[in-house]
């Protein structure tokens, strides 16, 4: 019992002596400016902690102040992470945009040269829920007729000269071409990305009529 008290006092005095030596060294090291008083306040706290801690250990031998401090530090880090969330969100958005644009490029390459139409616009939306994140939700393709194709048709109109029939014929031909192209697109998308037909919408942007883009086929 007496030995215990002696050991306790020895440890206590030792830690006090060490903290004062350290503090006097630090006093030399700190720059003398406006911040000196703040550092002094901080070191005052340290002295109090070093003096009190052994008595707390007598009452509650499991108590460890370092664990407490660490817990508080972790709490601080967690609150900081909440602020970081905003940055994370924008980052996620950027990643998503990049991903979508990559998919678009990939699809454009896969479709390649169509027989009779050009792809004028391509929209891709992806799933954002946990289960199937990143897989394609919907593909929207806007086609427009190839220019040289229509010129050829004009020529053929000139040659044949019978207007009524040629218009009907060319309209029918255009429809056929369109269906053929759509079939091609759907086949490619289905093969490569496993996108079912009901997830693909194709519009035809008719030439010459500018803004008007009717939904032609689904």
């Amino acid at each position: 019992m007496v030995m215990d008290i002696i050991v306790f006092l020895k440890d206590w005095v030792k830690s006090i002596a060490i903290i004062f030596v350290l503090i006097s060294i630090i006093e030399i090291a700190i720059p003398n400016g406006n911040l000196k008083k703040y550092i002094n306040m901080f070191m005052g706290f340290l002295i109090i902690i070093v003096i009190i801690t052994p008595f707390v250990n007598i009452i509650d031998s499991n108590y460890n102040i370092e664990k407490d401090i660490f817990k508080n530090i972790v709490k601080g880090i967690e609150t900081r992470e909440v602020y970081n969330n905003e940055i994370l969100q924008t980052q996620e958005k950027q990643i998503k945009n990049l991903y979508v644009s990559k998919i678009k490029k990939d699809i454009l390459e896969a479709i390649g040269e169509l027989m009779h139409h050009d792809v004028s616009r391509l929209d891709v939306s992806i799933y954002e829920d946990e289960a199937n994140f990143g897989s394609i939700q919907h593909v929207e393709i806007v086609l427009k007729e190839k220019k040289n194709e229509s010129i050829n048709e004009d020529k053929s109109i000139n040659v044949v000269n019978i207007e009524e029939i040629t218009i009907e014929k060319s309209a029918e031909k255009a429809k056929d071409n369109l269906l053929q192209d759509i079939e091609q697109i759907m086949g490619i998308l289905n093969d490569k990305y496993n996108v079912s037909k009901d997830k693909i919408t194709v519009y035809l942007n008719t030439m010459g009529e500018g803004e008007h883009s009717g939904k032609n086929n689904k």
């Binding site: 706290f45 340290l46 902690i49 009190i52 009452i59």
Partner: peptide, 16 residues
């Protein structure tokens, strides 16, 4: 930086 130590100190005093 000092905040965790201040909080721990207060906790310590409450325990004593």
């Amino acid at each position: 930086l000092a905040m965790p130590i201040i909080l721990a100190l207060l906790d310590l005093i409450m325990k004593v």
